[in-house]
């Protein structure tokens, strides 16, 4: 697949600390890309460089294969983590202003904005000032401002913060629909469950370095450890001893026993099942796949320790 954004060896240094050290990554056209990392890792610096708010000290960014330039501003929509709109300005007027700054003609912006207001059920708020709106309403308005000019690339920094679960779901569906209609989405967040749900690929940044990237499915595959959860009736301890697996944990549950086992090198699940079937009445067998959350914590801790040591 073609790259929408190619980040090549970006270095950004602020007085006293390095925000990005030699970071490279590729964001493919049409995917939802998760940009992950702890606070202060350098995510916002990278996002600001893609938005051309600041420039890198060295390295370059390609947008659709051409060097990132002012002409790309209108093709990017940005929802910053620190949300903000002019408090005293009317919401409709404000969205038109921001769309015009992105290079949209006013009339066209108005037609689209009206549609969006209807869709997110805030059409009666058009003439209200931002300070009169609830937090959730402001967030909706800001979301509209981000996507109104139909950007090819949408950068969302913690898009769900400040939304109640219902509106978060609403916005999530809007994001997925925009993605289905062709927009590439960069999605920066700490909420790992939304990463698993939404992202095709991710990159993990810690202490200014990129420490992990790739397709979510591939990364998870890579982090599989051959650990399974096995539940069976009764409390037969005989089944817990095997040359095929290592017993990690054993506990009693309502109707029997739950084991956590790790298969030894070269052993397939079927081999284990064949050994267990005669011994016990199986209730459930499930692979324990690491969550993105676990991968995140493990990788970050490992790298933080390495850089300290």
């Amino acid at each position: 697949m073609e790259s929408m954004i190619s980040i090549r060896n970006i270095v950004k240094q602020y007085a006293g600390h390095k925000a990005l050290s030699d970071v490279s990554m590729d964001i493919k056209k049409g995917e939802v890309f998760g940009l992950l990392g702890p606070n202060g890792a350098g995510k916002t610096s990278l996002i600001r460089i893609i938005n051309q708010i600041t420039g890198p000290d060295s390295g370059e960014i390609l947008f659709n294969g051409t060097k990132l330039s002012e002409s790309h501003i209108g093709k990017i929509g940005y929802l910053p983590e620190e949300r903000g709109l002019y408090k005293k300005m009317e919401i409709g007027e404000q969205i038109l202003y921001l769309a015009q700054l992105k290079g949209m003609p006013r009339e066209e912006a108005k037609a689209r904005a009206v549609k969006w207001f209807r869709k997110l059920e805030i059409e009666s708020w058009w003439n209200k000032k931002i300070e009169e709106l609830s937090k959730g309403m402001q967030q909706k308005a800001q979301f509209i401002a981000t996507v109104l000019h139909e950007p090819e690339l949408i950068i969302l920094d913690e898009p769900f913060s400040g939304f109640d679960p219902i509106n978060a779901e609403l916005i999530k569906n809007e994001i997925l629909e925009l993605n289905k209609n062709g927009a590439t989405i960069i999605f920066s967040t700490h909420r790992m469950e939304s990463v698993e749900e939404l992202c095709d690929s991710i990159a993990l940044i810690n202490l200014s370095h990129k420490i992990l990237d790739g397709k979510v499915t591939e990364i998870k595959n890579q982090y599989r450890t051959g650990t399974y959860i096995v539940e069976y009736e009764g409390n037969n301890t005989d089944a817990q001893q095997s040359s095929q697996f290592e017993l990690l944990k054993s506990e009693s549950i309502d109707f029997g026993t739950r084991l956590q086992i790790k298969l030894r090198q070269g052993v397939h699940l079927n081999n284990v099942l064949a050994e267990l079937l005669p011994k016990v009445q199986l209730l459930k067998v499930e692979e324990k796949i690491p969550s993105m959350n676990e991968i995140f914590i493990e990788t970050v801790n490992k790298q933080t320790q390495k850089s300290k040591g």
């Binding site: 501003i73 990017i76 940005y78 910053p80 709109l85 408090k87």
Partner: peptide
């Protein structure tokens, strides 16, 4: 100061 404290600045300077 208003633009800075209301944080709109980041949206605006991603456009200009």
């Amino acid at each position: 100061i208003e633009e800075k404290t209301s944080r709109i600045i980041e949206v605006v300077i991603s456009s200009v």
